[in-house]
Every structure is written in structure tokens, then in C-alpha cells.
Amino acid sequence: ESLYKTVWVFVVVVVFLSLCCVSGALCGTFNIKMPKNINVLRGSCVTIPCSFDVESRFENNLDDSCKAYWNDSPSFNSHNAKLKPTKDMTGDLKKKDCTTTFINTNLLQRSKYYIRLECNNALKYRFSQTGVDVSFIDDPPSPTLTPSTLEVKEGTSVSLTCSAPAPCWSHPPALTWTPNLGQSQETLQENQDKTKVKTSVISFTASHLHHGNKICCTAAYRKQDGSPDVTAETSLTPDISYSPKDPAVENYTWSDGGALIGTGHTLNITVSTINSNFFCNATNTVGFKASINFQIVVRNYTK
């Protein structure tokens, strides 16, 4: 029985290892990861994030001689590749990083591109199973504002985030806020597919002065072909509720320090010989504000 269990466990382990070799989990296999599609701003540079894996037997072949070639058809070699590498355009292939930046996007066409890895040894492989669709655009997409609307009370701490795609990592868009509401913090963040986005976060305290005044975020993209920069913008109009300040008053009431003596924007009363103090209270759904007191002094004059 003990021998039977040992044999059974051995068979299970062999089957498990065989399955792992097929899937590439342990034994390694050729595969590549990059975005399915990417937008290229015409005249600008573009970075295609890319990583790969090789069969375990080729791990030691990844050295300084390795180069990455791109082509718009899956069948090609280093000699007929349309896009040949330069030293500073590709990631560290020894670390399986095939991320590539094309400074001159005029070399690209609207097509699907595939990559081939070639080293001065036995490692030569064309990743024809996966390619990236390249699309050219003349105008960048509008930035994204988060939140997209702003409805808060005066005095609330507010943070707005502006995000814009960064198709070229070395030249991300410049983000500016109008009006300048304070210091902003900028970061270059990575999406799930390894593409990147530029973000700017601005924080301020909501004021009645912001109510109804447009807040705009502008993304400026610099071209590498000498043509003018292009911009895109997104805006929102804050709705700030605040205690009465002209003209946000809903009701006016008048009192003599105690009793209600009138309503409305103006007060008409018959004066008496008693000197009185009067107050005007302006109210809305957020709160109220009282005026400074004023006094009517009635003097008796003897003829």
C-alpha cells in the first residue's frame, strides 16, 4: 500500500509539471504583453509598453547583443523589418522589457505592428501571435476631471483631479489650471495595460467667490516634428451654496431686537417718540446673516 501511494504521488507530480510546462508557469514559454491598441498624436512621439518571456532554455541567451525589430506584418526578419531599433529606443531586453519609444512617428503607419527578438546566438523569435493596433489622431482627447461636477457648501475642502493620456513617456502633456486656485501636485501614473497618464491634483477651500465661475484644466502636447503644440481642455462650473451674501438672499426680515416688525427688502414704519434699534436679517437655505444695528432717534421740537 505504501508503494502504491508513492507511485500515485509521483504520477500526480509528473502530470502537474507537464501541465505547467505547457502553460509556461514553470518551464517558461514564448509570450508577449503589450496594449491591444494605442493612439498616436500625429507629429509627436509614442511609447509602446512591452514585456515578454522566453522558454527556459533560452534564458541565458538574453544578453547585450539582443535587439527588437518591429514590422506591420507578422512575417518578417531583421533584414526586412520596417522599424529597426536604435540604442536609446528600446527597454532592457535582458530584463525582458521590450518597451519601445518611437521619436519619429512618421515611420509608423495606421496598421498593426508585431515585434521580433534577435540575439547573436540561438535566440531568435518572432512574436506573431500578438500585435498592437496603431491609430493616428490629429487632436488629443479632452482631459478627465474628477469629480465631473462640484456642488458643495462654502468652507468645504475640495480636491480636483485632472488626468490626460501620456502616449509619449518622455514628453508627457503639461497640465495647467485656470484660474490658479493654489498649488497643484503632478504625477505620471501607470494604467493596467502599462500605458501612462499624467495627473494633476489641486486642493482649495470652496468660497462664494468660486460660485458660477468656470474652472478649467488644459493639457498641452508638444510636437516633435516642429509643428505647433496642440491643447485640449475640460471644465466645470462650481455650484457653491453659502450663507447670504448679495445676491444669494432668499428672504429679508426686520426686527427691533426681539419682535418681527416687517419683511422684504425695505421697511416702512411709523416712527414714535420711543428711540428704537432695528436689524435686518438676510436668510437662505444655508443660513442667515444679520446687519449691524441702526437706530432711529426721534426728537421733539417745541415751536
Rank of each mutant, 00 (worst) to 15 (best):
G131M: 00
K96S: 14
N39I: 07
P74M: 11
I48A: 01
Y113Q: 04
I48Y: 05
P141C: 07
P85D: 00
W70A: 10
L108V: 08
D63W: 08
A68Q: 00
K36Y: 09
P49R: 06
D64T: 10
P49L: 04
Y113A: 01
N80C: 05
D64S: 13
T105R: 04
K87P: 03
P141N: 08
S142W: 05
S51V: 08
I137Y: 09
H79I: 14
A68W: 07
E118M: 02
P141D: 07
E59Q: 11
L108M: 11
D97W: 11
P140Q: 08
V46T: 09
V54D: 05
K112D: 06
S44Q: 01
L123R: 00
D72G: 04
K67G: 12
N120E: 15
A81N: 06
K36L: 09
N120D: 15
N104L: 05
T105K: 00
S65N: 07
S65C: 07
F76R: 01
S142I: 13
T47R: 08
S65E: 03
I38N: 01
T144N: 14
N120G: 12
K96L: 10
L117P: 02
I48G: 02
N39M: 10
F58D: 04
T100D: 00
S78V: 03
S135P: 01
A81S: 13
T144D: 12
I103H: 10
E59H: 06
S56A: 11
L117F: 01
K124S: 15
L41Y: 11
V134I: 15
L123G: 04
T47I: 06
F52Q: 00
N104C: 08
D92L: 03
L117Q: 00
Y114M: 07
K112F: 04
R42C: 11
S135D: 14
N121E: 08
N121W: 08
S111V: 13
P85K: 07
T100N: 06
D92S: 14
T47N: 04
L123W: 03
R57P: 02
T100Y: 13
S135Q: 15
F136V: 14
S128P: 00
W70T: 10
A81K: 04
A122G: 03
K67W: 02
S56L: 13
D53T: 14
P140R: 05
K112C: 02
V46F: 02
D88L: 14
K112P: 05
T47E: 15
I103D: 14
C45T: 14
I115H: 03
P140V: 03
F58M: 08
I137Q: 09
S128N: 12
T130M: 04
A122C: 04
A122Q: 07
I115P: 03
